[in-house]
Design a protein around this nucleic acid. Structure first.
Length: 463
RNA sequence: UCCCCGGUAGCUCAGUCGGUAGAGCGGGUGACUGUUAAUCACUAGGUCGGCAGUUCGAGCCUGUCCCGGGGAGCCA
């Protein structure tokens, strides 16, 4: 018989019939040895479950095989049969096994639960564990679901630039991009002479694709970005990273109500998608990471989000009788503890707070008729807090120009942004959703560093 | 950046009043033989985060630095 093609373990486990000859390859998760025959559990990353391989002692390299340890990679040819043992439907009776790569005794992953902190120090090996392989399969599936959601609704995916010369993105501290010799920086009148730099001007990594994507919104209609985003804030929390992925939809001829509707539908779609398409992986999180996970997810999918004007949110907080570390007052931004009270204790479900005081929000948000608030909205979810921040954008040329001047920004920096309002302006709205925060919501994982392959945070650039 | 907690074997942790180091898992060796994080026996394995100090004596007390975690701010 000729060498069969490699079959993935997920396909073996979903098999409906026995197979006389299969070829599978993977990494040993555990090996139970005896003199006459042994059990090897093999995982190839195609699914959470392992397949059990039976090795009879009469195969030629038996003594070599039984000395293998967790982590070794092997190639197995054998027969797929119904398992006579309990606990699994199928198993493979090996005819021959080739060792592809051994794993010496200092292999850092063991057949037991490790802490997330430890696994973070071996981020190159952690996807070989059950929990992390599940996270990264879900991450991949959800990335696809994001495109599917928007493509089904005729949103165009726009690739906004990673390197920006715009110092007006205004969403946080930026990383510089330069080819200047840091040991010999050219100066002009005491300041860095950026004319000598690669782009001939100061350049940075993007903190948001929003301003760029707005120009496409006002031409292609409904658009979105999905890509990496960089912020050099010195944030040391379980919810922030220096490099993360963000989704920013932007809808033409849309107002804040449309924006809130889209935000809710988007989150519900993605949660539902995970429940339907990643059920086996999700079960691991419901069992070992967050016992209430399925209840939380079902609550999100089955109920409309609460829509709450900022002013009413302040009233609720003031009348709650709850002692907060930070005072609640109209005009002040809601603190984490306030947001958590609203979504976790008071409503016990996602809450959309909207119409915030203008002084605590960005210049591009649309001024409401009361001249005191802007058409902004934040979607708050239990355990994470803010997962979406969005707004209807100021489309009125004069009003936008005045806001830019009132905030002492240089109008010249915003010439192309203002142009979009000068020529055929139109109402539009959008939001930003942190992809990793969504993954935290869906999996119950409590530290954002554990839902991205190699986290970048202040003072951490390993791997 | 600020506040709090922690750092002991490869991993997870215990360590009493300050008297010089322990367990489980993992590794090795053997037994068992349809197991399921198998089980049983034996065995190897330590700069107690670094440096300085107090003390006859420090894993334990003091100072300082490094690292990790939780919370806050900034936000997604």
């Amino acid at each position: 018989m000729s060498m069969p093609e490699r079959i993935k373990i997920v396909d073996l486990l979903n098999s409906t019939e026995t197979k006389s000859l299969v070829l599978l390859k993977g990494w040993i998760r555990t090996l139970r040895e005896s003199k006459e025959f042994s059990f090897i559990e093999v995982n190839d990353g195609s699914c959470l479950a392992n397949i059990q391989v039976i090795v009879d002692s009469d195969i030629e390299n038996y003594t070599e095989i039984v000395k293998l340890t967790t982590g070794a990679s092997i190639s197995i040819q054998g027969e797929l049969i119904e398992s006579p043992g309990k606990g699994q439907k199928w198993e493979v009776r090996a005819k021959s096994i080739d060792v592809l790569g051994v794993a010496p005794e200092d292999f850092p992953l063991q057949k037991k639960r490790h802490t997330d902190e430890y696994l973070r120090t071996i981020a190159h090996l952690r996807p070989r564990s059950n929990k992390y392989s599940a996270i990264f399969r879900i991450r991949s599936k959800l990335s696809f679901a994001i495109h599917q959601f928007f493509q089904e609704r005729d949103f165009q995916w726009i690739h906004t630039p990673i390197i920006t010369g715009s110092d007006c993105e205004g969403a946080g501290e930026m990383f510089s991009v330069t080819t200047l010799d840091m040991n010999d920086i050219p100066k002009k009148n005491g300041a860095v002479d950026y004319e000598k730099d690669f782009f001939g001007k100061e350049a940075s990594l993007t903190v948001s694709g929003q301003l760029s994507v707005e120009t496409f919104c006002l031409s292609l209609g409904n658009v979105y970005t999905f890509g990496p985003t960089f912020r050099s804030e010195n944030s040391n929390t379980s919810r922030h990273m220096s490099e993360f992925w963000m989704i920013e939809p932007e809808m033409a001829f849309a107002d804040l109500q449309d924006d809130m509707k889209l935000g809710q539908e988007f989150i519900q779609y993605l949660v539902k998608y995970t429940m339907d398409e990643c059920a086996e992986d999700l079960e691991l999180f419901a069992k070992f990471v967050d016992k209430n996970l399925m209840t939380t997810l079902e609550n999100i999918v089955n109920n409309d989000f609460i829509r709450l004007p900022y002013t009413e949110a302040v009233t609720i907080l003031e009348q709650s009788g709850k002692k907060f570390e930070f005072d609640v007052a109209w005009g002040k931004d809601l603190q984490s503890e306030h947001e958590r009270f609203l979504t976790e204790e008071h409503f016990k479900q996602p809450v959309i707070v909207y119409d915030y005081p203008k002084d605590i929000k960005a210049f591009y948000m649309r001024m409401n008729d009361d001249e005191k608030t802007v058409a902004a909205m934040d979607i708050l979810v239990p355990a994470i807090g803010e997962i979406i921040g969005g707004s209807q954008r100021e489309e009125r040329y004069d009003v936008l120009k005045k806001r830019i001047n009132d905030m002492n920004f240089d109008e010249a920096d915003y010439w192309w942004y203002l142009d979009t309002r000068k020529y055929g302006t139109a109402p539009h709205a959008g939001f930003g959703l942190g992809f990793e925060r969504l993954l935290m919501l869906v999996t119950g994982v409590s530290n954002i560093r554990d839902v991205i392959p190699f986290p970048r945070t202040p003072k951490h650039l390993e791997f």
